[in-house]
Design a protein around this nucleic acid. Structure first.
Lengths: 374, 374
DNA sequence: TTGTAGGCGTTATCAA
DNA sequence: TTGATAACGCCTACAA
């Protein structure tokens, strides 16, 4: 310990600050020959500072690698600069879903860009009491300014609390009955457009491997699939729908089952790209060709889709935009806490590549237009 | 200004607090007929409070659902009560690993229990500059008290910064050359013991499906596998080692390759349970029986292993303990910042079930004993 | 055991 | 454009 060894015997157990000593506004102000207020203005990009003063202050700040103390700031400004990222407990076994990771990453990115920090909110017990404890500590203690809920599951007690207390919150993915703001894509319309594309390729026996039951997005995609078939006058064969859980391996198994059908499908729509990969493997293993023997369409538009063999056609979600929107909507809501809930639907994109039967991908079709109801 | 609405015309755009009004120490103190200090003591479980005063104060606190303001607390106490949870960016494609989720969950749980909050640290660019920006903002701004790094990858710039600045940090999983504290299991010894168990069952041709290259744990497990073979005088056949990435699907493919070998193995050791599941499917699909035609041993000890068919024998990691230890080690380090780095190795457990050839699991063998070197 | 008073590092309000 | 000067809500010697 001790640290900067010089004379003296033992510096009275003072925390040996690593790099430079920790400074505060006062000291920076003194060194720059201005008042604390001016330094504060520089830090907060306030316009009312003369160029000279600003540069002088900035120089001192840089030189000493000064960073304002977060606690003091939020105490005075009543803003923590921290957003909560809520991951429902029950989501864990859907974790294998690559899209989930992407959305979390994009939210992280967007927060970083907005200069906000993210606090992970995961309730331990899934119980109402546990949720309340966490909620009280974190929200009651004014630890954060708002919350983003990822992949909301019905019945999540924390979401209920957010709504009840009208605490600033944004859901990524719509919720059937809780009145909170959300960003989402129109899963139903997107799925329908995708299946219609398969129909346009001449397919009549189109199978679907669905997403995890209980997730709203999964239900919506299934509905879109049905609607497309019905609209095209194609009779619905229940044997052609197999439910999955967004994981690759499950889809592999389900695809094998589909292939073993007396009258197998000629095309399959998977509720996620990860599942599409599993299905493709099963098709390959069965010695069949994609798309000639079996067309495949995915959902999500993760990067790997483009590099699959053959390249996977898919319905792309605007992941980055979803994350960015979630953050900016939340920030807006924090500033205007009394505004009514906002719902924002972002457009998906049908990325046509080889697996659906389109040759080396010509263009990309935009499906659902951007709408802002409510 | 104004504030507590009385006469006046329209309360000047004052934020409509949802439930009850927000209170502070002062008000609680007044209501309880004591001083702020006493209330503070009650909040912080200070012994120097008379039972009467305590209960009186507590009653007022409960009645008004009072929660101390985090910012004010940390400003005064110089503790934020926030721990950073660092997830290396490059980890994303290992995300499919169920164990990763478990460890994150256990850390979350442990923090909750310790009354600490978790801030998610994920650097966007993977660049040194990006890392420094994040580091400066978060650590420089005194946003958190310490950091836990999950599944550390070599080359992660943030880890380097933590070490350079001697900021309180704990790695979950050892790091080859960075001098920071860590908790881990002894992957080498555990793997070796597992493979030795397979050998004890009479197997000589034992295959391994390894973990993601680049992860230290994966390398260690492979080394353990080799050592067991060598020690038993079994010649090493390179064809029997296939590298995986901790994901189920990959293991499925690799297992098929192993089965297609001119001289297939009679047992397979998988570097993760998720991969063991994939291997088991491949074995089943090939019409073979487990463990009669092929014995299988996993690693991790996730819950699903016990419910697989047949129940999967596996080397269990003490996930919950790992998380709890990480948190408590970090808390200790925060209190004693000048103590030297600590390394803690937790014991694994060989859970013997059906898949390795043991009948309905008799007992459990503890492998590596708890050691505390350095 | 209790209370008093000063301080933690910023922001924000007013004057100047 | 600048600078005093209050807050902000809590912790912590120190005194009683």
């Amino acid at each position: 310990m001790s640290g900067n060894g010089n004379g003296e015997t033992a510096p009275p157990a003072r925390r040996s600050v690593p790099g430079r000593a920790r400074m505060n506004l006062e000291q920076i102000a003194r060194l720059a020959g201005v008042s604390r207020s001016t330094v504060s203005r520089v830090i907060n990009d306030d316009a009312r500072v003369s160029p000279e003063a600003r540069s002088r202050v900035q120089a001192v700040i840089d030189e000493h690698n000064y960073h304002p103390n977060a606690a003091a700031r939020s105490l005075a400004s009543r803003r923590t600069g921290i957003l909560g990222l809520m991951i429902p407990r029950s989501i864990e076994w859907v974790f294998g879903d690559l899209f989930f990771q992407l959305i979390i990453k994009s939210i992280t990115l967007a927060s970083n860009d907005a200069g906000q920090n993210l606090m992970l909110l995961m309730e331990s017990a899934g119980s109402r009491e546990g949720a309340e404890r966490l909620f009280n500590r974190v929200v009651g203690g004014r630890h954060l300014d708002g919350v983003i809920v990822v992949s909301n599951v019905i019945e999540e007690p924390l979401v209920q609390l957010l709504a009840e207390h009208q605490f600033p919150a944004i859901l990524v993915g719509r919720h059937p009955f809780i009145d909170l703001s959300f960003v989402d894509v129109d899963n139903r319309i997107a799925a329908r457009a995708g299946v219609e594309h398969l129909i346009a390729h001449g397919h009549r026996r189109i199978a679907m491997i669905g997403g995890a039951t209980g997730l709203i997005a999964a239900v919506d995609r299934q509905v879109g699939y049905h609607q497309a078939l019905v609209a095209a006058g194609i009779p619905i064969d229940p044997a052609l729908f197999r439910s999955g859980d967004f994981r690759e391996m499950t889809a592999y198994t389900q695809m094998r089952a589909l292939l073993a059908l007396p009258e197998p499908p000629t095309a399959v729509f998977c509720a996620s790209d990860a599942m599409a990969f599993g299905a493709m493997r099963a098709i390959h293993d069965a010695g069949l060709a994609i798309p000639d023997d079996m067309a495949v369409l995915g959902f999500d538009g993760i990067e790997q889709a483009a590099h699959a063999s053959p390249p996977l056609s898919t319905i792309a979600q605007p992941v980055d935009l979803l994350g960015r929107e979630a953050v900016s909507m939340l920030l807006r809501r924090i500033d205007l806490p009394d505004a009514p809930p906002m719902h924002r639907i972002l457009p998906t994109e049908l990325q046509l590549r080889v697996s659906c039967g389109c040759q080396p991908a010509p263009a990309a079709l935009s499906i659902s237009e951007e709408v802002t109801p409510v």
